[in-house]
Design a binder for these strands. Structure first.
Lengths: 249, 249
DNA sequence: GCCGGCGTTCCGCTCAGCGAAATGACGAGC
DNA sequence: GCTCGTCATTTCGCTGAGCGGAACGCCGGC
């Protein structure tokens, strides 16, 4: 995280030093994590604070509002999310379960929208957060309709066992994906987290590639995946159609 | 947008040159907007692209996924949004109208969550977007429970007429805010956009300051604000209580 | 009182960053 | 066909923005 010592990469190293759990970090902690000398970090942060990219608090530094606002302008996420919002809302209303929208990125999926009610289990997913593709409903839905290189990358990166039910054999994953291609729906039963299951469907662009996926998540022992599959698939097809009409940005 | 010619401020100038409508910009367009010489912009963007802060597309540059992910780590927004999600979901389920969560920033409000169904009017608000405080439901709810300096700033910045019903007289705004303080609920009837109304309630921290506001938005001629007011207020009170228990970050 | 860690400031060296100018690639107009 | 205009990209020698070791003042714990 240090080779290129340009101003920019240092500033970005500072920003990415913030991890999901951190609310605020001290200057000293930041210099420790990044290896950037204290005066340098201090100067860079002062400039970032001037833009509200970070904010100075009585006892530390935290990521600022301007960063949040900028991030929301990312066009892919924005266009998709706005188009998807009504479909996700419908799905939530119909099922009262936690609903997700995710996009692929490398071997992971990144969540870009989530509607979580009070009824469902505490899901660890987070808007802007990542999960491996091979062991999540949205991930498998995306993999099944992605160019084959993507799957190769995922397998090459290794399938690590996260729960007793995680699929770690590439052959089994292949079979699962083939089945998903047939049905148009992916299921996941405690493959990423014990006690949680989900049903997901891919959102396809005009060329048949998966650009996103929608899922419903709930308690593994209560979620009736067979009953919910058509709902998720319908929502995904509806969103696909809207995106085809107003080409996604 | 040019005075300090540091690397950092130039990079940020480039990023902030993207406006909500832009999906992607060409290098030439960026140099035009920012006044940054082409080779310089080219170099900076190349480095930003290496971090996925921006992405290179066949014919331009767009804001990238890493920026989105980083923005989601901003702790204030994150903590609030996660705590608020179930309350907003409840509200949406109960009313089927568009639901917002917003925080104050200077004389504006910034939306940090939105659940929009299919029934409501097309609302121009956007997660990460801004609206003036004085003419929106959430804005008035926040102003009513903000330190008085905030109101002074807002008035000093000027109340511009956005629709025939916008309140532009500081005296009337004062009266409105006093009434909001009494009721604990703010209403807005076509003050920011013709045809749209909303009901909002503030989320207060332990010290009685408004840290956020929740609103329900719908068609001005159909939204029964009297009926919805208790619902919004209840949700806001519930969220306030949760935040007091798990102090907001 | 002493010590360790914190944030902040100073200041002279130096190399990262700069940008005018040149290059190549593409498409529209004639 | 050639000629522009506009685009992105590369080069390269100059220089001042950025650097960071060192020193500072402050605080809380032992």
């Amino acid at each position: 995280m240090d080779p290129p010592n340009s101003v920019l990469s240092r500033a970005l190293t500072l920003l990415t030093a913030f991890r999901p759990g951190d609310t605020e970090l001290t200057l000293a902690e930041l210099t420790r994590r990044t290896g950037i000398p204290k005066p340098t970090a201090h100067r860079l942060l002062a400039e970032l604070a001037g833009w509200n990219i970070v904010e100075r608090t009585p006892n530390g530094i935290r990521l600022g509002m301007a960063l949040f606002e900028l991030g929301q302008l990312a066009p892919l996420q924005r266009g998709l999310r706005e188009a998807a919002a009504p479909f996700l809302a419908d799905l939530f209303e119909a099922t009262h379960e936690t609903v997700h929208l995710a996009v692929p990125d490398g071997i992971d999926v990144v969540y870009i929208h989530k509607i979580a009610g009070r009824r469902g289990p505490p899901v660890r997913s987070r808007v802007g957060g990542r999960m491996p593709a091979y062991c999540t409903g949205v991930g498998k839905a995306l993999l099944a309709f992605a160019p084959p290189e993507r799957l190769a990358e995922v397998v090459a990166a290794g399938l690590t066992r996260r729960t007793p039910r995680t699929v770690v054999a590439p052959g089994l994953l292949d079979a699962d994906l083939a089945r998903i291609r047939e049905r148009g729906v992916a299921e996941e039963h405690e493959e990423s987290t014990v006690g949680i299951a989900c049903v997901a469907a891919p959102v396809l662009d005009a060329d048949g590639r998966a650009v996103a996926a929608i899922s419903i998540t709930g308690w593994a022992n209560r979620l009736d995946t067979a009953r919910l599959a058509p709902a998720v698939r319908t929502a995904a097809l509806g969103l696909s159609r809207v995106l085809r009409a107003h080409p996604a940005s």
